[in-house]
């Protein structure tokens, strides 16, 4: 289904797992409501969950409260996710990929999230460090030859 309307989702949460859970649910509702096709809808939800989980778990060197800003805009061609956090400098594009050749006993249980998102968006991602903020922009094509996902 062709997206002609420009739609946007904007939210600021604190670095708190419960707030992230609510946010992820709301993002998935947003992409459903604007009839994003199945695959890009999945990728938007995955990118938000993986990248923000990473920020909350690993980005901060103190135990304080921090704001994380999320902006999603859909223009018919792409969904663009912009994530902004004031954690330590971290460029996910430089994170090493997981070693997929290890046997089950030796595979580490973490480190997959960033890799999955990069693969799902074909590395259409940019990273900037500005005035103490990490700014990550992820672009997801909205194919128009697919039916939107049901609830």
């Amino acid at each position: 289904m062709q997206q002609t309307m420009r739609s946007a989702f904007r939210r600021t949460i604190r670095n708190d797992a419960a707030e992230l859970q609510t946010l992820c649910e709301d993002v998935c509702t947003f992409v459903e409501e604007i009839s994003v096709p199945c695959k890009p809808a999945y990728v938007v939800c995955l990118a938000v969950e993986e990248m923000m989980t990473n920020v909350i778990k690993y980005s901060y060197d103190d135990a304080g409260v921090h704001d994380i800003h999320l902006d999603i805009t859909c223009d018919g061609q792409h969904a663009t996710i912009r994530l902004q956090d004031d954690g330590h400098e971290f460029n996910p594009l430089l994170a090493p990929p997981p070693n997929k050749d290890l046997p089950v006993e030796e595979r580490p249980v973490g480190g997959l999230g960033i890799y999955l998102v990069r693969k799902m968006v074909n590395d259409d991602m940019t990273y900037q460090r500005e005035d103490g903020w990490n700014i990550l922009t992820i672009r997801i094509p909205l194919q128009d030859d697919e039916e939107p996902c049901g609830p």
Partner: peptide, 19 residues
């Protein structure tokens, strides 16, 4: 309908435990 790396981690953990 959806799995993220957190879900994959639990499955991997299960495979390790069962093995």
């Amino acid at each position: 309908t959806y799995v993220s790396s957190a879900g994959l981690r639990v499955l991997l953990q299960a495979a390790k435990r069962l093995k």
